[in-house]
Every structure is written in C-alpha cells, then in structure tokens.
Simulated scan of single mutants.
Amino acid sequence: MSTWKTIEVHEFIKVDKVEKYLGAEIIIDPRIQWLEKDKSYLQYLLYNFKVLIIKNQNLNDKELKKLASNFGDFFTTNKANPTLGSVDNSSPVVIVGNKADEFELSYLGNQEVLPHSDHQWLEKPSSVSLLYALDIHNGAAPTIWYDMEKIYDALPTDIKNKINPLKILTYNPFFRPFGSVSAKYVDRYLDVPQGETYDHPLVRTHPFTDRKSLYLHKAYEMEFIGLSVKEGKQLMKFLHKHIEELPFKYVHQWKNNDIVIWDNRSTIHYRPTFNENIRRVLKRISIAGEKPF
C-alpha cells in the first residue's frame, strides 16, 4: 500500500498552468537546493499530473542529470537486452535527433515512433523519462502523450474484469532491423521474435499513487498470456481503438530549451513522422524502474 502524501504548496516550485486532459507546466526557481522535500514535491507533481513541462531552460549535461536524478537512479541496460542508446552506456544522456551531425551517436531520425511506454519489454522498465529540446526547426514533429490511467478508467466494467488478471509479453524490437517493427500480435506457430521476455500485468498499479492504468503499447510485437491468437488479436484491436478514440492526450509542440518529464508507468507517447530535412535534436534521460505489478 502506498504511503504517498499530498503536498499542496512549495516555495521554489510553482504550477503555472494545468493542461486540459493531461500534464502541467511548472516553474522552478533557480535558487532551489534540491533538498529531500524538494524532490518529494517534484515527484508528487509528476505522479499526479503524469507529464511536467518546464520551459526556457538552459542546462548543461551535469545540470540536466541533476534534475533527472530527483526521480531516482539512471536507467541502464546490457547487451543481452538492448535499448535505444545501449551501444554506449558511458552516459545516461541519449541524443534523439534528426540532422544531428555534430553528435557521434543520435537516434530515431525522422521516422514515426508509435505509441509506447519506454522499455516495456524489460523485466524492470524505466519509470520516468525526460526530453530536453536543443534545436527544433519549423515543421519538426510534436510529441503526444496519452493518459493510460484515464483510458483504463473509461473502459466498460466487463472489459476491466476480463483484462485485470491478464499478463502481457512484449518483445524487444532491437532484435529486428531498425524501424521495421510495428504493433503486431505474435503467433508462436509462425514466428517467435528473439530475446528474453518478461510477463507484466496488462493493468498495472502505480507504486506511489495506487492508481491503475492500462499498460499497453501500440508499437511492438506482443501477446497476452493464456489467450488464443484469435482472442488476443481481437482484444488488442479493441483496446487500441479505445485508446485512440478518447481525448485524454497532451500534444507538445517543441521549442528550444523545453523540458518535458513524463511518468512511464501511467502514460504512453507518440511521435509522428516529419520531413527528413528538418532538424530536430533533443537529449533524453531515463530513470530506473521496478518490476510492474
């Protein structure tokens, strides 16, 4: 049971604007010392609003890592379970960029990035991630977040009863050619993707708020444990349609020096494709998480 406590005001962190369906814009006073009470308040805001937007920042990597560390230890992985940026584990900072030629390694280019929660195929997926916009040119794609807690709450009772006990297996897309994987229900009689798999609840409970959310992506190869392929495909199709029909989203149009922090436990996010000649460069840091329950 969570021991999470509500904190209503803070001297150095101000909620400036609450978005209609998901997220809040906050202002952090540069005098903040990041004491334990400061970290707790920032976590409280994130786990309740799920997406935090901080504008007009000018941070070096040390400062960016300091901000991210308020949510826990940095996410790391190994060669047996590859992820975006796992080629080089020397820094938690990963460049997500198109036309980012000044960086030795950058990822994702201009391709569509389907709705997902970061690292869902791992035993312990990341709990929190952030993006920091370095250089965003006109026409670059936005990022869209979905509130999977509200999306779960909006399901009919009979569907909730059906999916509450179900487990989901997500297959690691990095064992496939880059950019070739999309949402697909796995038929083990035809093809079993490579890589170790870990079963997670389709409906997960947040460790700090005790609230439930639909822990489902629209990006990778997957299956539901205990369902036939026919049943699984039908359920996946129904849930994907349900996700897209609801308005519980936040669309962020990036500007230079924006930071967006999000809770991977209760949101998924999406980026549409954009023109390959448009420069879009951001830094990403992810935070280690627990095994979903």
Rank of each mutant, 00 (worst) to 15 (best):
H242E: 04
L216R: 02
F74N: 05
L45G: 01
L214D: 09
H10L: 01
T273C: 10
R211W: 12
Q43Y: 08
Y146K: 08
E245L: 11
N164V: 13
K99G: 07
K162T: 13
D73Y: 14
P272S: 05
F12D: 07
L114W: 12
S180I: 01
K124Q: 14
A100V: 01
P201M: 03
M222V: 13
I54S: 00
Y215L: 11
P201C: 03
D73P: 09
D73S: 15
D88H: 03
K124P: 10
P92L: 03
Y152E: 04
L134Y: 02
L282N: 02
T83F: 11
S126N: 10
L202P: 04
P207S: 11
E231A: 07
P156K: 08
A154V: 06
K37F: 14
K241R: 12
A219C: 08
E223C: 04
L235R: 06
E290T: 15
F248D: 02
S40R: 14
S106I: 05
A80T: 15
P115C: 09
M236I: 13
A100L: 01
V229I: 14
L108I: 11
L42A: 00
L246C: 10
V181P: 09
R265K: 12
N48F: 02
S40L: 15
S106V: 05
H200G: 07
A133N: 04
L155I: 06
I243F: 06
I168Q: 05
Y21I: 08
D118Y: 10
A140K: 03
F174K: 11
T6E: 15
Y47P: 07
R280H: 10
S180K: 02
Y198A: 07
D61Q: 06
G85Y: 04
M222I: 14
D101W: 10
L216E: 02
R284W: 06
I95N: 03
D187M: 05
L227N: 02
D263H: 01
W4Q: 14
Y146E: 09
G97L: 02
H240T: 12
D187W: 06
K62M: 11
P292K: 06
I95K: 02
N256M: 01
N98V: 05
N172V: 06
V96L: 15
Q234P: 10
S126H: 09
K184M: 14
K150F: 07
P30A: 06
D187V: 04
V18C: 03
N277W: 09
P193M: 07
F274S: 03
P92Q: 04
L52W: 00
Y41E: 04
E196C: 07
G179C: 01
E244I: 12
L108G: 09
L282G: 03
D101H: 12
V192A: 08
Y185I: 08
V128C: 05
G232I: 06
E276W: 07
N56C: 01
I159S: 07
K249N: 09
K55W: 00
H10V: 01
H137Q: 13
L166D: 04
R204M: 13
V94W: 06
D61Y: 05
D153M: 12
V251E: 15
G85H: 04
E149W: 10
I259R: 00
N89Q: 15
D158E: 15
K160N: 10
I278E: 05
R211M: 13
V15F: 00
